[in-house]
Simulated scan of single mutants.
Amino acid sequence: MFLAKIKTLLIAAAILPCFIQPASAHIVWLDYKNSEYNILFGHPEEGPEPYETSRLKQATVYDTNKQILPFNLNQKQDALSLTADKNVAAIQGFFDNGYFAGLSNDQYLRITEQEIPKYDNVGHYLKYTKAFYDWSDALAKPFNLPLEILPLQNPFAVTPGENLLVRVLSEGKPINDNVTVEYFGQVVAKNLDGTFSIPITQNGLEQPIEASYSLPSNGNLTISYETSLTAQNISVPEPSTLLGLGFVGLLVLYKKKLLLNK
């Protein structure tokens, strides 16, 4: 009996990763840390999840003139990161999360493209991301992605306590209907002019802005687009760097004291 229960649990554990709840809530975003641009997947308000790295299909790194820069793609455990030179001003990427069939009770089953006709409700989940580390007139223009969030002002220049205005675009054109924008896991109300207001704190844009949009395709297939926008001021030293500078400063003072006491 005990072995039978263990076998049942193992089978359930093997099947469980095939289900997600819900598939469309996951996004891809970038986070700069320890000199790496980490490519993350999941819910930003809950933290990143492991993912199949082969699902990243494209990444592009830009300088402030929107010229493409070379970069290295680094394999981590169930994740990827980018490293590039110090002139990085923006990065955009595309992540194909594959096909999912909608089942009962808000469960989704990962399927292959060939299995689409077997199900009534199938979604193809395409995820895009855009991250800014600097700002310029060239970067302020649309990147012409299938879905992107466009800041209408310099995200690094917005005064804390005020709002960053953004607009959602598809191939460079505004989308005003059936678009959902979220920040910190909460839906953001749309302004009368079709823009969205994102609150800025002393820490700037604290989490990725998310947007999603679905478009019916052939028969039972729906194309579901998700996108994210991050803006990180990497000119500010990271905490580990500040600690290192503090240690160096203390060491210098200690040496001066030794010299005075000689």
Rank of each mutant, 00 (worst) to 15 (best):
P146Y: 03
Y32F: 15
N38A: 06
F196A: 04
P48E: 00
A231N: 08
L258C: 06
V166L: 08
G204A: 01
S24Q: 15
A90L: 01
L147E: 02
P22V: 12
T180F: 05
L3K: 13
N72R: 14
L253E: 13
I27E: 12
Q202A: 10
N220A: 03
S24M: 09
K141Y: 01
A13T: 08
K190N: 03
Q114A: 14
G47R: 07
I27N: 14
L192Q: 14
E206I: 10
K66N: 02
A211T: 06
I175D: 01
V248F: 12
N220G: 00
E226F: 07
G47C: 06
S197C: 04
L56Y: 08
Y125M: 07
N203Q: 11
W29K: 12
S217T: 02
Y225T: 03
L242G: 01
L80E: 11
L253T: 11
V236M: 04
R55W: 04
D177E: 14
A89F: 10
M1W: 13
P199G: 00
K262T: 07
I68V: 12
H43L: 15
F184P: 03
Q67F: 04
V88I: 10
M1S: 10
N97M: 04
P146E: 06
P237L: 08
Y213F: 15
L260K: 15
F100I: 02
R55H: 13
Q202W: 08
V88G: 09
I68N: 09
D31S: 12
V28E: 13
N203R: 05
L192A: 15
N220V: 03
N144Y: 09
L10C: 13
V28L: 15
N178V: 04
I149S: 02
I6A: 04
F94N: 05
N72H: 10
Y133L: 07
N261T: 11
T8G: 02
P17F: 05
K190W: 09
P174H: 04
V168L: 03
Y254V: 08
A4W: 12
K262S: 13
D96Q: 11
A90Q: 14
N105E: 12
D78E: 15
L56I: 11
T230E: 08
I149K: 04
K76Y: 05
L147M: 08
Y128E: 03
G161T: 08
L164P: 00
S35V: 08
A131D: 12
L243I: 12
L192Y: 06
L82R: 13
F41P: 15
N261I: 05
T222W: 02
L260C: 09
Y108L: 05
Q232Y: 05
E49P: 00
L126E: 13
S35T: 10
L215R: 12
F132C: 02
G102M: 07
E52Y: 13
Q58A: 14
V166H: 05
N220R: 03
L69G: 06
P17I: 09
V168I: 11
S212D: 09
G172H: 03
Y32M: 06
I116M: 06
F247G: 09
K262V: 04
I6K: 06
F100K: 12
F71W: 09
I27R: 10
A101N: 00
L258K: 15
G204P: 06
P44Y: 03
S104I: 03
K141L: 03
I91R: 11
T60S: 11
G249T: 13
G246M: 09
Y183N: 12
